[in-house]
């Protein structure tokens, strides 16, 4: 069975260490915030000038001076802070962000990330903070479905879409597997329950191998 979006986010969240400073990209990565393991203090960064971002408030408590990068209302946890945009990206580029979790159109076997443009001629180009965060975070991982809606691989040998950053992605969490990227390409380190390595390989567009000790993703409950 392929994982649901919440299961994907839950699996990713298990790898975030206590004390980590983390930026979650817009869309699917935002769900990771709902699954942070209890007992760990994890500080979420939002590039519009927030550290210590908390969950969405109740409808009556919404404050549009306190939104996340996706422009949705959020809250601030005790210990949180506000700062201006240049400081926010100094946190990103200055190496203070331990981890970023981004979405992707394509990830290449050499770690290239494409997540801002499909290069379609009529599309309005819009990059936001993706390039800065992909390059600046100490570790960059991707959370995305293994294939596009029409079944094309998102894990590819070389990106055909315009790059966000070359050679930055270390791990990809998909609905089928957890996949590391090393010098030899994609390495499956965990499989979703009931999913075989061959099924993952068949849906992957670049060099892929089964990692030593490849296990099954252990889901809660």
């Amino acid at each position: 069975m392929s994982l649901t979006r919440d299961q994907m986010a839950w699996r990713m969240a298990q790898d975030i260490a206590d004390g980590a400073y983390v930026n979650l990209g817009i869309g699917l990565p935002e769900l990771v915030g709902n699954h942070l393991p209890p007992g760990r203090e994890i500080v979420l960064h939002s590039e519009n000038g927030i550290l210590g971002m908390g969950p969405e408030p109740a409808a009556t408590e919404r404050d549009y001076d306190l939104i996340n990068a996706g422009k949705k209302p959020v809250t601030l946890l005790p210990g949180g802070a506000y700062f201006h945009h240049a400081d926010s990206f100094a946190i990103v580029r200055g190496g203070r962000l331990d981890l970023c979790v981004l979405g992707a159109f394509q990830v290449a076997a050499i770690g290239d990330l494409a997540n801002w443009s499909t290069g379609a001629p009529d599309a309005i180009p819009a990059v936001g903070g993706a390039m800065d965060i992909a390059v600046g975070a100490r570790r960059c991982v991707v959370l995305t479905e293994h294939t596009t809606r029409d079944g094309k691989p998102k894990l590819v040998e070389r990106c055909t879409y315009p790059l966000t950053a070359p050679g930055v992605v270390r791990r990809v969490y998909t609905d089928l597997a957890v996949v590391d990227i090393d010098a030899g390409g994609f390495v499956v380190v965990e499989l979703a329950p009931g999913i075989g390595f061959e099924a993952v390989a068949a849906r992957t567009g670049g060099p892929i191998r089964r990692g030593d000790g490849c296990g099954i993703i252990a889901l809660p409950g």
Binding site: E47, H84, H85, A86, S88, F89, V92, R93, P125, A126, V127, G128, G129, A130, M131, D132, I133, G136
Partner: peptide, 9 residues
């Protein structure tokens, strides 16, 4: 179009 952090800097 300018990356957001580059725009800020």
């Amino acid at each position: 179009v300018v990356p957001q952090g580059t725009l800020a800097e």
